[in-house]
Every structure is written in C-alpha cells, then in structure tokens.
Amino acid sequence: MDVIERPLDTAAKRVPSGLGLDAPFRWLTRGAALLVVAALGAMLAVLVIWSWPALSRFGPAFIVSGHWNPVTEVFGASAPIAGTLITSAIAMAVGAPMAVGIAIFLNELCPYRLRGPLGVAIELLAAVPSIIYGMWGLFVVAPLFANHVYPVLITWLGPLPVVGQLFQGPPFGIGMLTAGLILAVMVLPFIASVSRQVLASVPAVLREAAYGLGATKWEVARHVLIPHARRGLIGGMMLGLGRALGETMAVTFVIGNAHRISASLLQPGTTISATLANEFTEASGDIYLSSLVALGLILSGVTFLVLLGARYMLARADRKMPT
C-alpha cells in the first residue's frame, strides 16, 4: 500500500537501479553487431584465399569457360553460373506473381472463415525441409513431367521459331525447368507471407476511399494496394530470390547435374550450389578444391550483386512514384 502513498515525483527522480548495466549492455549489443561484420569479413577472406590458386591459374577464363574437367584439372564455371541464374529466374517468374496473388486473395477476397487455415497452409510450405522438396521432385514431379508435361511442351512449343529452342530434346523430366518450378514452390511461402504483412499495413482509409469512389476489387488491388506496398513486395521477392539462388538439396535432386549449357530448358544442367554439394567430398587435388571454393565465392558475389541491383531499382522506383 505504501507504493500508492509515495508521491509520484520521488519515484521519477529515483536513480534507476539498472543504470550500472547500461554500459555493458551497450557493449554487448555493439559486440554482437561487430561480430557479424567480422564473421562476414572472415568468410570472404577465406573464400578469396582458398580460391586464389584456381582464379590466378585460370584467370577470366574461369567465368567464361564451360569446361569442367577434373581429369585434366581445367575448370570453368560458366555452366553452373548460368544454371543458377536461369533456375532462379524461372522460380521468380512463376513464384513471385503467384505469391502476390495469394496474398491479395487471402487479405482482400477470401471469405473470413478460410483466411486462417489457408494462410497457415501456405506458411507451412516454408516448414517443409528442402530435402523433402528434392525427393518429391525426384519421385513425383520428374516422372509426371517426363510422361505428361515435357512431351506436350516438346510437341507444341518445340517447333516454334526462336522460343522453340527452349523446349527441345528428349523428355527426361529432370532439368532446368523442373528445378525452377520446384524452386518456385519453395520461395512461394516467403514471398506470400511478407506480401500479406505489407498489404495488411496499407491504411484502411486508402482502401475505403477507393471503394467509395466506385473502384472494383481489381482496380483497388492494381492501383492502390500494389503501388502502396511495392517496397515491401520487392523486399519479399528479394528474400525469395536469396533462397532460390542458394538452394542446394532440392535442386541437386532434379536438375540433372550436367556441366553443360543447353539452349533448352528441358535439358539437364547444374547450379553452383548443386556442384558444390556433389563434388566437394571427393574433390582430390588442390586445384579442383580451389575451383570449388571459387564457385562459392562467385555465388556470394552473384547474391551480393542481385541484392545491390534490387536496392537500386527500389530507390529508382521511389523517386519516380512518391507515396
């Protein structure tokens, strides 16, 4: 009861008992932040040092050449680099619009009773381990594609000029397209979940005003919600792209693991992370190992460039269309 009896101003003037902990707390948090920077720097340093023998030996040819020959110890990384970019591009082209569509449906159009269960179901996709996606891709998706999807694509799209080149060759069911589509499913929950949050944060006033003006649901989504939330939407896509670029197990199962660049999306290829997963354990010889580390360095570089590019586009979009 004496707490109530004490005048309020004495309580405010009392020296906080936790003051002595303030300085250590500041140092602790600063230390944690600096540790992350130091770890990143150390990782980059190790990547550069270990990959130096290969990079200095092959020079720019390492990035340009498509030969990956452990027998003669001549290594070029163009096939895995191209495979990484192509599969991620397919994943984003298919996954990102679908994820934003799901987010709009769940937030705006879905009957209220279904929002919870559907939202949880989409987010559970993120909880599935990537090895499960790999096995699902190998045992279920690949045979299905080999028997029913690839033959149709080859028959109908293969003969077309220019575009047709993307859909030619024997129907294995595994290759760039399968890997890209599996990745699309994997990045879906990340993008959808972030998109839902940013769409929900659009002020209700804007929405109500638009409906008040007689806008349809499509018009509200297209002209109000998406422009207002685009920064967050792109942020979510970047998260997804980050996962797609580095994803290893699921891709290794379904991409076919061939060090070749084919014009056709239906043919086997490889990605940087799949190559590392496949070959690191048995890489004998210093140049071989060094070349694999150099691949890791390039993957870090590609991821960095993608993030940089996305930030640049974001900044430009902001200047063009102020909100």
Partner: peptide, 24 residues
C-alpha cells in the same frame, strides 16, 4: 572419380543413378 561427361544426366549417389535409370 569425376570426369567431364560428354553426354547424359548425373544422379547423386547409387540411389540417384538407379532412380533416373528406373524412371527414364
């Protein structure tokens, strides 16, 4: 232990090879 294969697709491990061979 690894070579530059002129053709074909690569499966990881015996199980990867047997699976590709089994379903293709």
């Amino acid at each position: 232990t690894a070579v530059e294969w002129p053709v074909g697709l690569g499966g990881k491990g015996n199980e990867g090879v047997s699976n590709f061979a089994g379903q293709t």
